[in-house]
Nucleic acid binder design. Structure first.
Length: 584
DNA sequence: GCCGTTTTCGGCCCGACTGTTTTCAGTCG
């Protein structure tokens, strides 16, 4: 059983326990374990096979370790079966609906026998829901609306789509003179590959005006909530946007809080408590105790010791400021406390782009146009990586065509001494692991990039062996988009990524982080593993037109999420050093 | 259910909004 599946079972456990009114901290333990397993690049089945001590993993104790072992070995979990005997597992879907949590799901089930979304729809349409205690006409309507949405689109929004969708909203809000500051926080600021919704943070002395403008944005499909300090709208695109309005004295604390992640925030708050402080979106306060010893209910009670800037919030809990991309509780708090935070790679440090296509195959621009685009970026070099002949639909190049292309490259290079063109190709890994190009051509290329474009459905063992065989070819330099996923479109092909990364390291092959926002392949947890192994990474745009050279930023952001520094990235090397690294 | 050199027991983050509750529970982020 793979990590994602194990994570799913653990999360189901959490949902079902919650419906049963289990100890909320027990529920949280399952959620934490689920999240950890989902994010972990090394397969649990491998750790189990090696008889590794699973309880050494964060958030995994004796019980979780046993659960994971059961799931790996039998694909089943007795504890889950016992739970689903008591609570129908289809209630998990019902809980996905907005406004329906564990308590209401339980009531729907116990009082009117609703176990599924379909049954709930029927009951709501018949008006049976509104009469239940805790429900009313509005919640019944909200449920019906939620079911509609549930069916339409459930996928998260790609970060690049979010960039596009919210920039006009930001401009619209910024036209308001009384708005002092506007920031996008949340997973968007952490630059996750997808975002569930958008969190906006506004600083103003006129909260009503800002909220009013927010809810009257022309692209609003519905207003879901609008109070004095918090509002929520759904755009016509389906993307939901939250706006929180705060005073300037709380700006830093609010930005920390709404940037998250939730797990990162929990750690910060715990540090605050350890120091006799209370941390909320309003600031850091010296904790006051009421006479009976309970916590003060007023969030602004006590003396504010920090809050206007992020730096001072971190300082109040004895930490340096932490880059948003790192705030996932994946060790950044410990590193910050120890003064060992990484010096994250920046876009300006990229000196070349190592995958792009031209009109020779399926690109839309000529080699020279792509060159000019790279010069504009200030690059020292770039690799011209048109497809190989197996990809006939892209006009892939056979040996003869490649030789012709070399002549053109030579001619263009002569006219453009300001940038080095690397003779390269994106060569298909055929189903048996051999490469789709003649040996003589492979020897003549400056850079050999390989990738899988076919037979995505091979069983995991076969797919892995196919790629391992290709990695062992002595001419190979870079393995491109190693898992083949397309976000929201195509799952990664079944492959043992752990084994592939190890094999790449042994064979001196660099792995590509494909910067295209639809790919972002490798994903952050894979890149973390690569870094731990000391495996180098290439960030490449895979541009098919000049404009797409701009996609580099998404790759760099993803790399930053994985703690990568410029020394981890081969295309941060100056040209001569990069060329030397290829010959090693 | 997890965790820990102050703890192996007793903690575990915190506040806003909605709807239906006539004073607050549930949900959400």
């Amino acid at each position: 059983m793979e990590n994602l599946e194990i994570a799913k079972v653990l999360s189901q456990m959490a949902d079902l326990l919650e419906i049963q009114d289990a100890n909320p901290f027990r529920v949280r333990a399952y959620r934490n374990a689920s999240r950890f397993v989902a994010d972990h690049a090394t397969p649990m089945r491998k750790l189990v096979a090696e008889e590794a001590d699973l309880t050494a993993l964060p958030g995994i104790g004796k019980d979780m370790a046993a659960h994971i072992r059961d799931l790996v070995e039998s694909g089943r979990l007795t504890a889950l079966e016992e739970l689903t005997a008591k609570v129908p597992s289809t209630l998990i879907d019902v809980m996905e609906l907005p406004g329906v949590g564990p308590k209401k799901a339980k009531r729907l089930w116990k009082e009117i026998g609703v176990e599924t979304i379909e049954a709930l729809e029927t009951a709501a349409q018949a008006g049976e829901v509104a009469g239940l205690a805790g429900f009313g006409a509005k919640s019944e309507q909200k449920i019906l609306q939620g079911i509609e949405q549930f069916r339409q689109h459930r996928s998260r929004c790609k970060i690049s789509d979010a960039d596009q969708l919210i920039s006009p909203l930001l401009e619209y809000l910024q036209e308001l003179p009384s708005l002092d500051r506007l920031e996008v926080a949340g997973s968007y600021r952490r630059r996750r590959e997808t975002v569930g919704d958008i969190d906006l943070l506004a600083i103003t002395n006129e909260p009503r005006q800002v909220m009013q403008r927010f809810v009257s944005y022309p692209m609003v499909a519905r207003v879901e909530m609008s109070g004095d300090t918090r509002g929520r709208i759904a755009l016509q695109s389906g993307l939901e946007v939250d706006l929180r309005v705060l005073p300037a004295a709380s700006y830093g604390a609010a930005l920390v809080y709404f940037t998250g992640s939730k797990e990162h925030n929990i750690r910060l708050r715990r540090r605050a408590i350890e120091r006799g402080l209370r941390l909320s979106e309003y600031g850091v306060f010296r904790a006051n105790e009421t006479e009976d010893g309970t916590a003060e209910a007023d969030p602004l009670a006590g003396v504010q010791v920090a809050g206007a800037a992020e730096e001072e919030v971190y300082e109040a809990v004895d930490l340096p400021w932490i880059e948003p991309e790192l705030r996932e509780d994946r060790g950044e708090i410990e590193a910050a406390a120890a003064g060992s935070l990484p010096e994250l790679v920046e876009l300006g440090q990229i000196r070349g782009d190592l995958q792009m296509h031209s009109t020779w195959s399926d690109g839309k621009n000529t080699i020279e146009e792509m060159l000019e685009g790279c010069v504009t970026k200030g690059y020292e070099y770039f690799a011209m990586t048109d497809h190989s002949k197996a990809l006939a639909m892209t006009g892939g190049l056979d040996a003869e065509k490649v030789r012709q292309q070399w002549l053109e490259i030579e001619e263009i290079q002569a006219r453009h001494p300001e940038i080095r063109i690397l003779r390269s190709q994106e060569i298909d890994i055929l189903a048996d692991g051999s490469l789709d190009q003649e040996e003589e051509i492979l020897q003549g290329l400056d850079l050999v990039v390989i990738s899988v474009h076919s037979r995505f459905d091979l069983p995991v063992g076969e797919q892995t062996r196919r790629i391992l065989r290709a990695l062992e070819h002595p001419q190979v330099d870079i393995l491109a988009h190693p898992t083949g996923r397309l976000i929201n479109k195509r799952p990664p092909f079944a492959v043992d990524i752990d084994e592939i990364l190890h094999c790449a390291l042994e064979n001196g092959v660099v792995v590509e982080l494909n910067a295209h926002p639809e790919r972002l392949d490798l994903k952050d947890s894979h890149l973390i593993l690569a870094r731990e192994l000391g495996l180098k990474v290439a960030i490449s745009t895979d541009a098919h037109r000049v404009q797409q050279l701009d996609l580099m930023r998404y790759g760099v952001e993803q790399a930053r999420r994985a703690w990568l520094e410029p020394t981890d990235i081969v295309n941060c090397l100056p040209l001569q050093e990069f060329l030397r690294s290829l010959s090693d």
